[in-house]
Computed example of a mutant assay.
Amino acid sequence: MTLSETTLLALMRELDDPERLEQPLHYDRAEIGLAFDGLIRRLEADFEAPCESERDSQDSSEYGRIHVPAEATICGTRIVVCVSKFGSLAEVCADNPGAYLGTEEAREEGVLDMADLATVEQALAELGYVSVPEELLESDYEGPSALEPFATRPTWWTRFFGTIW
């Protein structure tokens, strides 16, 4: 199920705690790690390829990233799935966050196939993640946290996936 932009913004505002920039109050690293491992296994099965991952990003509100290798995708461009420490928020992008203005531009450029995107989005939804489009994450941040010392133009991506220290 795809959530509307209004619903996603409301969710991000709800998760935004200005007292806890790096992780939420009841953050359970072990639980997040188990869910992340499950997502890795699912993507490896769906794409029939081993996926590299990074986790426990220091000084960041991002938990980790999973890289679906380029050779496993229809267009030959890797897919990166970023997972936040907040509310199981996730982002899907072609190549790297910020490489394109979003999945729509990546599709138009011929580097992201909609079937591959649908495969990742389905895995995220079935495993309890909330996928937030890169286009929305790159919009101006309008929440209560003081992010200006960490970014000249704070975005929702800065808040939930970026380095904040």
Rank of each mutant, 00 (worst) to 15 (best):
M1S: 15
S4N: 13
L9Y: 07
L11E: 13
E14G: 03
E14F: 06
D16A: 02
P18L: 15
E19Y: 14
E19V: 00
Q23F: 07
Q23I: 00
Q23E: 10
L25K: 11
Y27C: 01
A30Y: 10
A30Q: 14
E31H: 12
E31Q: 14
E31G: 07
G38Q: 08
L39V: 00
R41S: 11
R42F: 00
E44R: 06
A45Q: 14
F47R: 09
E48G: 04
A49M: 11
P50T: 13
P50Q: 13
C51F: 09
E52W: 12
S53F: 14
Q58S: 09
D59E: 14
D59I: 01
E62A: 15
E62M: 15
Y63P: 01
R65Y: 10
V68R: 12
V68S: 09
P69T: 01
E71S: 06
E71Y: 06
C75S: 11
G76V: 01
T77N: 11
R78D: 11
V81G: 06
V83I: 09
F86I: 02
G87Y: 11
S88P: 02
A90K: 10
E91K: 06
N96K: 14
N96V: 00
G98Q: 11
A99S: 12
Y100Q: 03
L101N: 13
L101G: 15
T103H: 11
T103W: 05
E104V: 04
A106R: 06
E108Y: 05
E109S: 12
E109H: 12
G110I: 06
G110T: 04
G110D: 10
L112F: 03
M114Q: 14
D116C: 01
D116A: 00
A118F: 14
A118L: 13
T119H: 03
T119G: 01
V120L: 05
E121M: 05
Q122N: 10
A123D: 09
E126D: 13
G128T: 04
G128C: 07
S131A: 12
V132G: 08
P133C: 03
E134Y: 09
E134Q: 14
E135K: 06
E135M: 00
E135L: 02
L136P: 03
L136K: 03
L136N: 02
L137C: 04
L137D: 03
E138C: 02
E138W: 02
E138K: 05
S139Y: 06
D140C: 03
E142Y: 00
G143L: 02
A146S: 11
L147Y: 12
L147G: 06
P149C: 05
R153E: 10
P154A: 08
P154H: 08
W156F: 04
W156A: 03
R159Y: 04
F161P: 00
G162C: 05
I164R: 15
